[in-house]
Write a protein that binds this DNA or RNA. Structure first.
Lengths: 138, 138
DNA sequence: TCATTAATGCACTTCCATTGCATTTGTTTT
DNA sequence: AAAACAAATGCAATGGAAGTGCATTAATGA
């Protein structure tokens, strides 16, 4: 079991106090978070730092970006088996219309999608909307 | 074959010069357009008018909104068989990473997606990215 | 024609994403 | 350990898109 420090170093990310905190924050959350969510959790720190930290994490393959259709970019930790940087990542996101939370359903693979002749599919973004397990019992 | 005037009236949309022009513009384009696209095509007109026109069209079921992951909302005419206002519309969009165009692949239905127990799916947004027929022959 | 209602245009506002630059902090080298 | 370097942070500002309030203009209906 790697420490967070080791994990960051293995991805060529310099270890700083802020980055450790943000990483821990992402681990604790099991849902995708917005930049504002992080901002609210770390009011002492500047928005730019948080923004650039998450961008660094993204470039180095620690988090991936999610567009769940709310218009606000969300981020979630890449899990074991998350091949978000690889073509044809068929990984599904669920957005709850009630609590507004978005989760990665990594286990739920999507069947291969057919596209018309001449079209080349590289990557698929699938967002299912509805009510999550916490909100479905109205 | 209905005229555009008749079509608009049948949807309870008042016919104005601007609306006719925007409708024709959407027909001519076979791809989804952004508000800026429309704005560039009608520089004489105000952005707000174009914005509200497209919103009116959307409310009345003439166009539907597409979120193709570029961060900019796009709009396309609803075709025969487009049930975008109905739950579980499983209609697929393709976004070309080269020419940046997005098209509706109405004919390509998506298989039913399974979600975990306790989750209720209401609606699905599926965007396939890659290269379109015009751009795939690099 | 007059009155009513809707459409248009202008000016703002808000929100999120992003960048430039100066400063601070952390490494590395001598 | 000090100097030199590089990267991280914080502040200020920008840009783009979405959306709203209000006055004006145009269209409909009595």
């Amino acid at each position: 079991m790697k420490t967070i420090e080791e994990l960051l170093e293995s991805k060529n990310i310099r270890v700083t106090a802020m980055r450790l905190l943000i990483y821990k924050f992402l681990v604790e959350k099991d849902v995708a978070v917005t930049l504002s969510d992080i901002e609210n959790a770390f009011e002492k720190s500047d928005r730019t730092t948080l923004y650039r930290t998450i961008k660094t994490f993204e470039e180095k393959g620690i988090v991936h970006q999610i567009d769940d259709g709310t218009g606000i970019t969300k981020y979630a930790l890449c899990e074991k088996g998350c091949n978000c940087e690889i073509e044809n990542d068929l990984h599904l996101h669920f957005h709850c219309n009630n609590c507004n939370e978005t989760v990665c359903l990594t286990a739920h693979k999507i069947p291969q999608i057919k596209v018309p002749d001449g079209f080349v599919a590289e990557n698929v973004n699938l967002v299912v909307k509805g009510f999550c397990d916490k909100c479905s019992g109205h």
